[in-house]
C-alpha cells in the first residue's frame, strides 16, 4: 500500500468513526432522531390518510404509501444535520486538524460523507423495524436492493450537503438552500404524494430529481418486486444507476469545492 493511500484510508476511517462516536454519545440526539420519524409518520401520515385515500393505488392506505418516504426523509435529515456542522467544524472545530493532516481532500469528503451516512442509515435501520406496522412484511422486502438504494442515496445526500456547507460557509445560507431546494425536492419526489398524471409538470419534474430515484428504489424494494407504488416507472437497475451517478457526482462536486475554495 502506498503511503498516500494509507493516509487517505486513515482520514476516511477517523472521520467516519468520529461521527458515529458523537452520535452514540449524545442520548438526546439518539432519542430525537428516532422519535422524529415516528411522529412525522403518525401525525402527517395519519392526517393525510383521509385526504389521499383515493389518489394512491387502490387497496393501499396512505400510511403504507408514506412509510418509504419517511425512510428517505430520515436519510435526508441526517445528511442535513450532519453536514451543516461542517461550517463551524472547519473554522473552529475538529475538522481543522484533519485538514492539516496528510490525507487528501477527497478522503476528507469521503470520510465525512460515510460518517454522516452511517448515522442516517443506523436511524433508518431502526425505523425499518417498524415496517410490518406499515404493512410491509420482512419476508417480502428485497433487503439487498433496499440497502443498495439507501447506502448510495445516503452517501450522495451527505456529500451534497458537504459541498453545500463548504460553498455557503454560513448556516443561514445553508438553511435557505435547505428550505428552498432540499425539502421541496423531497416533497416532490413522490415521498408524500403520487406525482399525478404522466406528462404533468410534477411528473416530468420527477425525472430531474435525484431523490425520486431513491424514493422509487426504496418503495419498490419494500414491496418486494411488485413496484406498484414506485413513482418512477423505470427498472430497478436504471433507478439504481441514477442514484449511483448522483452519489458519484456529489462526491466529485464536494471534493472539487474543497480543493477550489480552501
Amino acid at each position: 500500500m502506498t503511503s498516500a493511500l494509507r493516509d487517505d484510508l486513515a482520514t476516511i476511517t477517523v472521520l467516519a468513526r468520529r461521527d458515529l462516536l458523537r452520535f452514540f454519545r449524545q442520548p438526546s440526539r439518539l432519542v430525537g432522531a428516532l422519535m422524529q420519524p415516528v411522529v412525522f409518520w403518525l401525525l402527517i401520515g395519519g392526517g393525510f390518510a383521509s385526504t389521499f385515500q383515493y389518489a394512491v393505488a387502490p387497496g393501499l392506505g396512505y400510511m403504507q404509501y408514506f412509510y418509504p418516504g419517511i425512510v428517505v426523509m430520515m436519510v435526508l435529515f441526517a445528511s442535513i444535520f450532519g453536514t451543516i456542522t461542517v461550517i463551524e467544524d472547519r473554522h473552529a472545530g475538529f475538522l481543522q486538524s484533519v485538514l492539516v493532516s496528510p490525507g487528501s481532500r477527497a478522503a476528507v469528503v469521503l470520510g465525512k460523507s460515510l460518517g454522516v451516512s452511517s448515522v442516517g442509515l443506523t436511524q433508518a435501520a431502526l425505523f425499518l423495524a417498524l415496517a410490518p406496522l406499515a404493512g410491509f412484511t420482512y419476508a417480502d422486502i428485497d433487503w439487498a436492493t433496499l440497502t443498495a438504494f439507501l447506502v448510495l442515496g445516503a452517501v450522495g445526500l451527505a456529500a451534497f450537503g458537504f459541498a453545500l456547507a463548504w460553498i455557503t460557509d454560513s448556516s443561514q445560507a445553508y438553511h435557505a438552500v435547505m428550505s428552498i431546494v432540499l425539502l421541496p425536492a423531497w416533497i416532490l419526489s413522490g415521498a408524500m404524494f403520487p406525482p399525478g398524471e404522466p406528462g404533468s409538470a410534477l411528473a416530468s419534474l420527477l425525472h430531474y430529481n435525484p431523490m425520486s430515484y431513491i424514493v422509487s428504489g426504496v418503495r419498490g424494494a419494500l414491496q418486494g418486486d411488485a413496484r406498484t407504488l414506485a413513482p418512477l416507472a423505470g427498472s430497478v437497475a436504471a433507478d439504481l444507476t441514477w442514484v449511483g451517478l448522483f452519489a458519484a457526482a456529489s462526491v466529485a462536486l464536494a471534493t472539487w469545492t474543497v480543493y477550489k475554495r480552501r
Binding site: D7, R17, L21, R22, Q26, A92, Q96, S97, P102
Partner: peptide, 28 residues
C-alpha cells in the same frame, strides 16, 4: 508539520486520549 490553531480544533464530545489516538491514526 504540527499545527496549533487559535480557534478550537477539538471535539467537545471526545476525550483527550481519543483526540490523540485519532490524530495518531490520521498521521499513520
Amino acid at each position: 508539520m504540527g499545527v496549533v490553531f487559535q480557534t478550537p480544533s477539538v471535539d467537545p464530545n471526545l476525550s483527550p486520549r481519543e483526540h490523540l489516538a485519532l490524530t495518531a491514526r490520521l498521521h499513520s
